[in-house]
């Protein structure tokens, strides 16, 4: 491939890749698209960084613990059961 065609292809992939990184991480891309992301990431430092930091962001989100501060679930059960006969809110 000539240098000009190579640069055109890289530029095209550079515009395309960021919009497909999330689907790539979820394993939702077709095989050609997956290969395109991987090829471009190996060629483009900027996109490689974005993909790597996006993957780490998703990993961190998946490790987030449940929010603190909830009271005893039994209190919620009592409160809900005491209101089961209420009329629906408009």
């Amino acid at each position: 491939m000539s240098t000009v065609l190579y640069r055109l292809r890289v530029r095209r992939d550079h515009r395309w890749a960021p919009g497909h990184m999330s689907a790539y991480l979820d394993g939702e891309l077709s095989e050609p698209s997956r290969a395109r992301i991987e090829r471009h990431s190996s060629e483009c430092p900027e996109c490689r960084w974005v993909l790597k930091s996006l993957a780490r962001t998703v990993t961190i989100l998946r490790r987030m613990p449940a929010p603190r501060g909830q009271g005893d679930p039994r209190d919620l059960v009592i409160a809900v059961r005491s209101r089961l006969g209420e009329r629906p809110r408009p």
Binding site: P67, L76, V80
Partner: peptide
Amino acid sequence: FGQLVAAHAERVYG
């Protein structure tokens, strides 16, 4: 229903 509330309270709150 109370048992269902207790089982799902934490996830709903979260």
